[in-house]
Structures are given as structure tokens and as C-alpha cells.
């Protein structure tokens, strides 16, 4: 039971969504964009979030885009994590999505909802960061496109009245060899202690993490260390872990020291897998 009243709007187009957002805002309704809704409902129930209206975006056709016919894979923000996984269009994202929450929740949580989440993990962002994704947004000025690296600073920093319509990743990245390793405290169905995703693009290892810090991380310095062929795996992994040591989380899922231990082991196993040509895909 959500202890306050709010309105529900389900626009049929990007334009409708933008217009209703403005109208609700002007009427003092404090509207919020609504994807799968799981986070909004659970937060609102316990009083961690308040709003006067929700705008349910997931039936807008542009948000349902699912296409890889050209050079890019386009995935609508209104697709559920389960739909993304089943589409097999971006296997790393599919696998990452398949380890967020549980399967039934994956049938409700949307790609856009996970990316815009207020919870620190936002694991779906990792493959997009690795794939230099383009984020397409909708708003009063119509459709806009951003490079993810330009607007992702700890989280997607979108202008207030814009919402995510879809994401696009070049096929060379979407189809690249990849890794996804999710470590939890002990129970499988849990937030990540550390989720590590990686892909190999043009022989270069790209890597991003969730749960490691208070936000998803992709770090060029860390990638440079891991790709430094002049040193052995162990030292590369240690170097990368040391480079990240300052931002490691210390929370109820694990201490920062333990995260560093897990991180190092994960990095070693990824590097060894590359050597052993066990690419792609190791859990």
C-alpha cells in the first residue's frame, strides 16, 4: 500500500509523454518517469520517495525498439530485462540483465528503469559503458542522442524533462567476446558484492564494475593496467585493484578489504581466461 495518492498516465508517443510531463509539472504534481515501476513502488511504500504522478513510458513504440539490422543494435528503454536477454542481440547485456534481481523481476524491470535507478548498482549500465553506447532520449525538443561517456557521471545525468527512449551499441561491440562475473555475499539472488563485465574490442580489454563502488565504474587507468602486456597477470590484477582501492565500498555486503580480494581474484581469472582463449563468456 503506497501511503499517498498519485495520478497514472500512459502516453502513446514520445511527444505525448513530453507534453504530459510539462503539464503535470506546471500543475504542481511532481511527475516521475515510470518504467517497470518496481523501484518506484517499493520506495514509495516505505516513504523513501514521493511524487504526484507517474508517466508510464513502456508502451511507447519508440521505447519498444528492438533492432540489429544495421551496424548498430538498438534496444528500447521500455524492454524488460527478460526481453533483452531473450533477444540475444547484445549477449553481454543479456547476461548482465539475467543476473539482476530474479527472473520474475526481470519480466518487469525495464532497461530504462535499471539505468535510471536510484539504487547504486545499475548493472545494465556496465555493458553500455563498455560498448560506447549512444543514449537516445525523448523530451519537449523531440529526440536527442548522447554518447554515454558524455552524460554518465556515476549515473546518467539527463536533463530533467528528458527520458531514455532507447540505447544503441555498435554491433562490433555488441557481438564482441565478453565476460560477466557476478559475486555476491553468499546468496545468488542478491545485490552484487562485485559484478564485473568485460569485453574485448580490437584486442583491448574493456572492463566495468558494479557494487565495487557507490556507482558503476569504468576506468581508463584500470583498463590500461590490465592491458599492459609488459607485466604478468598477477601484477596487473594487483595494480588494477590498487588503482580502485580508494573507491571500494564498505557496507553490509562486505568490507572494502574483502572487495579488493574478490576484485583481484576476478581480474586474474579473466586475464587467465583470455590467455586460455576461453572467451567468450565465463560466469
Amino acid at each position: 500500500m503506497i501511503p499517498f495518492d498519485f495520478e497514472y498516465h500512459r502516453p502513446a508517443s514520445v511527444r505525448e509523454a513530453a507534453v504530459v510531463y510539462r503539464q503535470l509539472e506546471e500543475a504542481g504534481k511532481a511527475p516521475v518517469w515510470y518504467g517497470g515501476g518496481s523501484e518506484l513502488i517499493s520506495m514509495a511504500r516505505v516513504g523513501n520517495m514521493g511524487f504526484g504522478a507517474v508517466i508510464d513510458l513502456k508502451s511507447i513504440p519508440d521505447c519498444r525498439l528492438l533492432d540489429n539490422s544495421g551496424d548498430e543494435v538498438h534496444l528500447g528503454a521500455g524492454l524488460t530485462l527478460d526481453e533483452i536477454r531473450r533477444s540475444e542481440k547484445f549477449p553481454l547485456l543479456g547476461q548482465t540483465a539475467g543476473r539482476i534481481a530474479d527472473h520474475t523481476m526481470q519480466c518487469k524491470i525495464t532497461l530504462g528503469g535499471n539505468l535510471a535507478s536510484t539504487i547504486i548498482y545499475r548493472e545494465a549500465a556496465l555493458p553500455l559503458l563498455l560498448g560506447d553506447a549512444t543514449i537516445t532520449t525523448g523530451g519537449e525538443k523531440g529526440i536527442k542522442r548522447y554518447r554515454i561517456r558524455d552524460i554518465f557521471r556515476d549515473r546518467l545525468q539527463l536533463p530533467k524533462r528528458e527520458f531514455i527512449v532507447s540505447t544503441s551499441v555498435a554491433r562490433q561491440y555488441a557481438e564482441a567476446p565478453y565476460f560477466h562475473i557476478k559475486k555476491t555475499k553468499n546468496e545468488k539472488i542478491d545485490y552484487p558484492l562485485i559484478t564485473t563485465t568485460a569485453l574485448i574490442a580490437n584486442g583491448y580489454l574493456r572492463i566495468a564494475f558494479s557494487g565495487l563502488a557507490a556507482y558503476p565504474v569504468r576506468d581508463e587507468v584500470v583498463e590500461a593496467i590490465l592491458n599492459d602486456q609488459s607485466i604478468d597477470f598477477e601484477r596487473r590484477a594487483e595494480g588494477a585493484a590498487a588503482a580502485l582501492a580508494g573507491i571500494l565500498l564498505e557496507d553490509m555486503n562486505g568490507s572494502s578489504a574483502y572487495r579488493r580480494f574478490v576484485l583481484k581474484n576476478t581480474l586474474v581469472s579473466i586475464l587467465e581466461s583470455i590467455k586460455d582463449a576461453q572467451v567468450p563468456c565465463i560466469r
Binding site: 555475499k185 553468499n186 594487483e238 585493484a241 562486505g254 568490507s255 578489504a257 574483502y258 579488493r260 580480494f261 583481484k264
Partner: peptide
């Protein structure tokens, strides 16, 4: 509970 972190602590004293 016997969390991997606890085992790691007991076993290594927290070494990497």
C-alpha cells in the same frame, strides 16, 4: 553465518 568473507578472514587474517 559462514560467509565467504568470514572464511577468508579466518583463513588469511584479511590478506589479499
Amino acid at each position: 553465518p559462514l560467509l565467504p568473507e568470514k572464511i577468508w578472514m579466518a583463513k588469511t587474517g584479511g590478506r589479499l
